[in-house]
Amino acid sequence: MAFETKATIANFGGKLLKLQHQSSGTNTPMDVNLFLPPAALINGGHKVPVLIYLSGLTCTPQNCTEKGFFQAHAAAKGIALVWPDTSPRGANIAGETESWDFGAGAGFYVDATQDPWKGFYRMESYISTELPSALFAAFPEQLDAERVSITGHSMGGHGALTLYLKNPGKYRSVSAFAPIANPSECAWGKKAFTGYLGEDTAQWKKHDATELVKGWKGDLKALVDVGTGDNFYKQGQLLPENFEKAVKEAGVQGLTLRYQPDYDHSYFFMSSFAGDHVEHAAKYLFA
């Protein structure tokens, strides 16, 4: 599956590639940004580990690339970064652009089972299987398919946690900024899950980190940051306390959950702790 390179930008000694390819899963073109650190380029380069970042509601690959400030930390550690899109674009489904929290820009990292979404909104399969397979095939000398971690923000934090929990061994570690940690119990999640998955709440639990972690075995290798000044946290959209409780009740080890005083939901928050999350990934990617 060939990628078209839309732009190549020098960045912290590495290269930021703005790519596009035709997805067989979403049946649309998909944009993705890839940062290759200096280690992947010097003297012909060598394979480097990969950190996938999943963005939040309304975002595109550009938002975190430009405002998250991950590249400097990744360049220093020798880690490639991947920023996928948050949904298909141009599916031309009636109503897909009417809401900021459902449809375009809000794929919720699930494979839809309901019409008319199921023919296009297949973001779980796209992120976990199709995109990495395409990237590793396109960049075999630069990207190490055996060393991959995942992180994300808000809806993307939900995606990172659930994909990690549903695919033991696929990712070396997981981290999240202000994740929607119990979507079955918040307004954002209920709206998205009803639309994409239907009314059966048993199906929702298969995409809910708070439910999935109850069956986890071994070290969780998870870092989660939440800002206490985050209005969405205060409104009950994130519910990290439910996730933390489920982890404790299941006897699962390896969760570091930090409540950062006064930080909000924005890229000011993420950029402040991006280095910690790259460091967390590096601890396991280079183990």
Rank of each mutant, 00 (worst) to 15 (best):
S175R: 04
F136H: 12
K191E: 11
F102Y: 02
T151P: 03
Y121F: 15
L165P: 05
T162S: 07
C186K: 04
F108Q: 13
N167S: 15
F177Y: 08
D144F: 10
A91C: 07
G95R: 02
V148S: 04
S128T: 09
E124C: 11
S128W: 07
S99Y: 08
A187E: 14
T151D: 02
G95W: 01
W188Q: 15
S99R: 11
K118E: 08
F139S: 00
G107A: 08
G157Y: 00
S133R: 13
E130L: 15
N182R: 09
T151K: 04
L163R: 05
K191H: 13
G103Q: 00
L135A: 08
V110P: 00
R147E: 06
A187I: 12
I127R: 03
P168K: 07
P179C: 08
G152D: 03
A134G: 14
W188S: 14
T129P: 09
V110C: 06
A134M: 10
L143C: 07
A160T: 01
E146I: 13
R147G: 07
S125K: 08
R89T: 10
K191M: 14
L161S: 03
S133E: 12
Q142G: 07
S154D: 05
I180N: 05
A138F: 06
L135E: 02
L135H: 06
H153L: 09
P168H: 07
G159A: 01
M155I: 03
Y109L: 05
I180A: 04
T97K: 03
Y121C: 12
S154L: 07
G156Q: 05
G195M: 03
L197M: 07
Q142I: 12
I180V: 10
P168L: 06
F136M: 15
K166R: 05
L165E: 02
G195I: 06
Y121H: 12
A192P: 10
H158E: 06
G189V: 09
W117R: 11
C186V: 11
R122G: 04
A134H: 08
G90S: 07
G105A: 06
K170G: 10
G159V: 00
I127V: 12
A192N: 08
T194D: 14
P116R: 11
E96D: 14
F136G: 13
W117P: 01
S125N: 08
P168M: 06
F139A: 02
F177D: 08
A176K: 06
D115V: 11
S154K: 05
I180Q: 04
S125H: 09
P168Q: 06
S184M: 13
L135W: 01
G152K: 04
G159H: 00
V110D: 00
Y109K: 04
R147H: 11
